[in-house]
Amino acid sequence: MTKIISAFAIGVVFGTGILIAGMADPAKVLNFFDIAGTWDPSLAFVMGGALLVTAIGYRLVWVQKAPLLGTAFQLPTASDLDTRLIGGSAVFGIGWGLSGFCPGGLVPALGLGMVEPLVTASAILAGMVVAKSAKSALDRGRAPAAT
């Protein structure tokens, strides 16, 4: 129960940061990308603030042996700069540039009572479901002798 309450509270802080920063506002996000037009550099300050706190905070946290409510810190171990990483990120950027919503910006927007974020969320989830089956199909093709 403690885990659920703390995750909820951290989610509230994360979402509040996104909203204050302007990351939930597609108009602002798209203007950040529109260097040749109505450029609004604000979101560089979001990244600056978040990176400053995280880069220092992570190192202070990792001095501990384990998280407060867990047995070990779970960090990604992959190190390959492979096609999936680069191709996937390229496709994500195209989608972000078309819609103005990244996943972190979208979730707090869901609580504003508007239709557009809900529509975008269903499209993102549909993309995730399709990608999940496409990935397992690709993996099967890649290692046919594994089973």
Partner: peptide, 13 residues
Amino acid sequence: GGFLVGIGVSFGS
């Protein structure tokens, strides 16, 4: 855009 975001973040981890 949303659909591409869903595909992209899944493959791009």
